[in-house]
Structures are given as structure tokens and as C-alpha cells.
């Protein structure tokens, strides 16, 4: 039986020290048993390493930044679709998800499929809303408060024990062990990322992550828990091991079941001194270490593509425990003519 061929566009080709998941997702797609994938890369910048990995990516196109708006994005995707006849797009950057969710209808009309969370799911798991999210779905999240004025800091002493984590709306965070440090972080972070500022209870413990896939109806299609073994100075996992923690799997099933999560995701968890898991963050897409899931028997990128195409997918229920991923850096040799081509024509 010949397998069907699918043209799949993937973003997030920035396999750098704070990596995008694109290259790992592509490796999963190329190992898929149910289809033959032809990969089209979508890149923002001309030095994203994935552009030059011709064994993984057959052709790459530059696409406009999300800040240019969905009309410009749609124009570009239409152009690419004419040439490549895309079946599925897998966006891998947080910042672009909003735009893709917004244009799902137009993409479907063109015959392109995506499989992303709903706008409500995307919004309610946002950092600013995470505390309410935890309350709504009975998931333990660190206590947090959104503040707009520096004078609000004084009330914090009643509600929080020091130290606390001071977080920006989009990026940046710091740990403060007294009110003066909170004040200085408030000023520093709000100057850069604007208001509000999020004050979060500091949870000490060990970091765990779990990646999975929800079918949008409350069913878990895949779930693989991992413990980070080596963390870079940017907080990224450079090595990790698959583990058999039933509590984490239960938590994931509860998360998917109660939110009816649609698409890939990663939960960042902190196990505190009472051995309880605290949910620190929900990433609304597959993580950069997704290839570990593929390696332990759950090809989440493949399952995601099949769900996008509306196929029935049998949930994965097992995976290999004690398998590790160890990330490494690899220097490719690239002729400047390739860089020239992507820089001047936006295609390679």
C-alpha cells in the first residue's frame, strides 16, 4: 500500500540556544508511519538554521511577522499555497498562534488545515489569567496577583510571603526577597514590557514538564512526562528523561478533560516540598523537546497532523520510560550564495 503524501508547512526553524520546536517537529513528521511528509519551512529571519537543513526541509519561504497583521499573512500564505499545495500548517511560535487561530476559516477554505487551541483556551491560559485558570479548573497554580500601580506593592505583604516572583506581561522575571526588590523589579520590568506586572508566589522545588495532545473533546491523545536533567542559563532543557509519574499523567488528563484542550501543549510544573505539583505555565504548542515524545513511542507531530485532517486517531497509552534526550549543537557549512538567496528573494 502506498502511503499518502502530505505537504506540511512548519514554522519555528530557529534551532538555536533558546530553540523553536520546528526542527524537532519536522523530525517527527518525517518518521511518521501513516504518511510521507514533504516539509515546507516558513521562516521569519534568514539565519534560522532549519532553512539550511535540506535533508529535512525541501523549501523555505519567508513570512511576515505577526505584527504585520493577518491580511498580509494570508496574502503570503496564498502565494506559498499556489506553489506548494499545502495540506497542513503547524505554527510553533507563541506569538503567531493568535493570527493563525484567527484565520483558520480562511485557511480551511483554501484546503489548508491547522490544529490549534481555541481563542478562549489561548487567552485563559495566558500568564495574566493563569491564577483564575487554576481556580476555574481546580488545578494548583502558585498564588499570583496582577498589579498596575507601584503603591499596590505595599498590600502584597499581607497576601504573600517573601520571596516572590515578579513577572512581566510577556517576558522577563525576577525573584525578590523584600518589598524594595519588588519595587525595583516592578520599575525595571514595567519600563521594558509595560503594565501590568504579575506577582507570583515563589515555589521551591524540582521542575517537571509534560507534553501532550488534546483532541478538543476532552480526550488525551498523547502525553509524555519528562524531568529536565540539564538546564541552560536561559532556562531551557538541554537534556531530559522520560518518567513514569502517574500524578503528572492524571493532572494532564484532568487538564485536557476539563478544558477540552485542542492541539499540542506543554505544562511546566514545579513539585514542591509537600510533593505536590504546581502548574507554572501552559505553553499552547509543542515544546522544543517534542522529539523525545517521538523517541519514546508517541509521535505527537504525526498524530497532530492526522487530527488536523479530521482522521480518527487512536490515543497513545504507553511510552518508553527512562529514555533520555541529550541536545547538541551542530555546525553546518553553508555557502553564502544560499544566504544570499533567502535574503534577497525570501525563498530557498
Amino acid at each position: 500500500m502506498t502511503r499518502k503524501k502530505l505537504n506540511i508547512a512548519v514554522t519555528g526553524l530557529n534551532a538555536i540556544d533558546s530553540p523553536g520546536p520546528g526542527v524537532a517537529v519536522i523530525r517527527g513528521l518525517l518518521e511518521a508511519k501513516s504518511f510521507d511528509a514533504n516539509i515546507v519551512g516558513l521562516a521569519y529571519e534568514s539565519l534560522e538554521p532549519g532553512i539550511y537543513m535540506h535533508n529535512l526541509v525541501s523549501k523555505t519561504y519567508q513570512v511576515p511577522y505577526p505584527s504585520a497583521g493577518v491580511d498580509v499573512l494570508l496574502d503570503r500564505l496564498q502565494f506559498i499555497h499556489q506553489k506548494e499545495h499545502l495540506d497542513v500548517i503547524i505554527p510553533n511560535f507563541d506569538a503567531e498562534l493568535y493570527s493563525y487561530i484567527k484565520i483558520e476559516g480562511e485557511l480551511n477554505a483554501m484546503g489548508i488545515h491547522i490544529f490549534l487551541p481555541t481563542m478562549t483556551q489561548l487567552e485563559e491560559r495566558h500568564k495574566i489569567n493563569l491564577f483564575d485558570f487554576g481556580k476555574k479548573y481546580a488545578i494548583k497554580v502558585p498564588k499570583s496577583k496582577v498589579i498596575y500601580e507601584i503603591s499596590d506593592i505595599y498590600d502584597l505583604q499581607k497576601e504573600f510571603e517573601m520571596p516572590v516572583v515578579v513577572k512581566g506581561k510577556f517576558y522577563d522575571a525576577g525573584i525578590a526577597s523584600n518589598i524594595d526588590q519588588v519595587k525595583s523589579l516592578f520599575k525595571k520590568i514595567s519600563a521594558k514590557w509595560g503594565l501590568p506586572i504579575i506577582i507570583q508566589e515563589f515555589v521551591q522545588g524540582t521542575e517537571f514538564n509534560i507534553t501532550g495532545l488534546g483532541d478538543g473533546k476532552g480526550n488525551t491523545i498523547a502525553a509524555v512526562p519528562m524531568r529536565k536533567q540539564y538546564i541552560t542559563d536561559k532556562g531551557k532543557a538541554w537534556g531530559g528523561i522520560s518518567i513514569a509519574d502517574q500524578t503528572m499523567l492524571d493532572l494532564t488528563n484532568h487538564f485536557i478533560g476539563s478544558t477540552k484542550w485542542r492541539g499540542g501543549f506543554e505544562l511546566e510544573l514545579m513539585k514542591d516540598k509537600n510533593n505536590e505539583f504546581n502548574l507554572l505555565e501552559i505553553n499552547p504548542r509543542m515544546p522544543a523537546w517534542i522529539y523525545l515524545a517521538v523517541g519514546v513511542g508517541q509521535n505527537i507531530p504525526e498524530a497532530l497532523v492526522r487530527m488536523a485532517l479530521g482522521e480518527e486517531v487512536t490515543p497513545y497509552t504507553t511510552y518508553d520510560i527512562g529514555k533520555m534526550f541529550i541536545r547538541y549543537a551542530w555546525d553546518m557549512i553553508v555557502d553564502i550564495s544560499e544566504f544570499q538567496k533567502i535574503s534577497t528573494s525570501g525563498e530557498l
Binding site: 530557529n14 538555536i16 523553536g20 521562516a43 521569519y44 529571519e45 534568514s46 539565519l47 534560522e48 511576515p64 511577522y65 505584527s67 504585520a68 498580509v72 511560535f93 507563541d94 506569538a95 510577556f170 517576558y171 535574503s343
Partner: peptide
């Protein structure tokens, strides 16, 4: 000049 920057989530380019 082609400044080789990695995609910054908050980069601005308008079309």
C-alpha cells in the same frame, strides 16, 4: 546591511 537577528517575538516589520 543584513543584520542577522534571530526572530524576536516582538520584532516589528510592516508590510
Amino acid at each position: 546591511r543584513l543584520d542577522s537577528e534571530m526572530p524576536n517575538k516582538f520584532g516589528m516589520r510592516t508590510d
